[in-house]
Design a binder for these strands. Structure first.
Lengths: 157, 157
DNA sequence: TGGGTATTGATGGGCGTCAATGGGACATTA
DNA sequence: TAATGTCCCATTGACGCCCATCAATACCCA
């Protein structure tokens, strides 16, 4: 499975359409639905996009919580606020007004790779935020504990 | 399997009919009964809809509770209050008066995707409720423990 | 290595299709 | 006959599909 990495800026046309960067699109082939799932982030005025499998995983994880519980209800807001955006033949999606407004997107859209998912930002808003995150990580001396790599064939344990 | 996500507002006509959003309808093809199951929610003046398989799953879950227990009796109210609403050729259903009245629905109906099922609300009522849920999740810093991802090919356990 | 050409991703816009909606015709039942 | 519930058909507006253009890059060949 391909990973989403890097940043791409694309234009929004009069119809509200924007091309999803080609390297990102390829991760969505072979889905039952030809497009992306987009949902709002709690922490920022930005959105996150994922594929069908990830969305199904989120839905199933919600089902693990007790039915009718407050916790399930609160977190389900993500599903309720999500959008299915399908590709047109050129690989564009139409961003709903709600998303444009919340993210403050007018003429340009920034796609930010995040591994299994990617985010959708208004370019300026992202810049401001990224500066902060980078600085926090630098000051804090951020570290990351890596998982064990998956065992490959022919290797001894 | 398709997921129910997002929100859709549709009108109710003079005959009490309302179109079920197309993306939701597609999840009900191939059922023995061409329509949706609707049952009331305890916590809100709103209703939830699901397909045949989910309804069966709920019924089975109720059987797991002690027979003759108050708990089983109470939760069985869901089944007792459920309606089968069948699609007309255009994909509309007729909402029973009981549902319209309880939910306070008059001119518009809101369909809210929740993964494997969706809810039916009066738009204003939902809006008030959603604002609260989103805010609770944000303040609480709500997190979701994801299920283990399905194993991918080539990976060892 | 330079220049020319082919390919492809991003963008713009016209047009047909389909989902949502409204209303009438007909059957069924009380 | 009134009331109710299907089914069918008409309208309309949004959106998906198609085609054209442009620019950047990859490719090719001398």
């Amino acid at each position: 499975m391909a990973l989403f990495v890097g940043r791409h800026v694309n234009k929004i046309d009069k119809k509200g359409r924007v091309s999803v960067p080609k390297p990102f699109r390829s991760a969505f082939v072979g889905q039952s639905f030809n497009g992306i799932y987009v949902y709002p982030l709690f922490k920022f005025n930005a959105f996150e996009a994922c594929d069908e499998a990830f969305m199904a995983r989120m839905s199933d994880s919600l089902e693990d919580l007790p039915m009718f519980s407050d916790e399930q209800d609160d977190l389900s807001v993500i599903l309720e606020s999500a959008h299915q955006l399908s590709f047109d033949p050129e690989g564009r999606v139409a961003l709903p007004k709600e998303i444009l407004k919340t993210a403050g997107i007018t003429s340009q859209t920034l796609f930010v790779g995040r591994g299994r998912r990617f985010q959708i930002w208004e370019p300026q808003a992202y810049e401001a935020n990224r500066g902060q995150a980078f600085e926090r990580a630098r000051v804090r001396g951020a570290t990351l504990q890596l998982r064990q790599p998956p065992r490959r064939e022919g290797e001894e344990s």
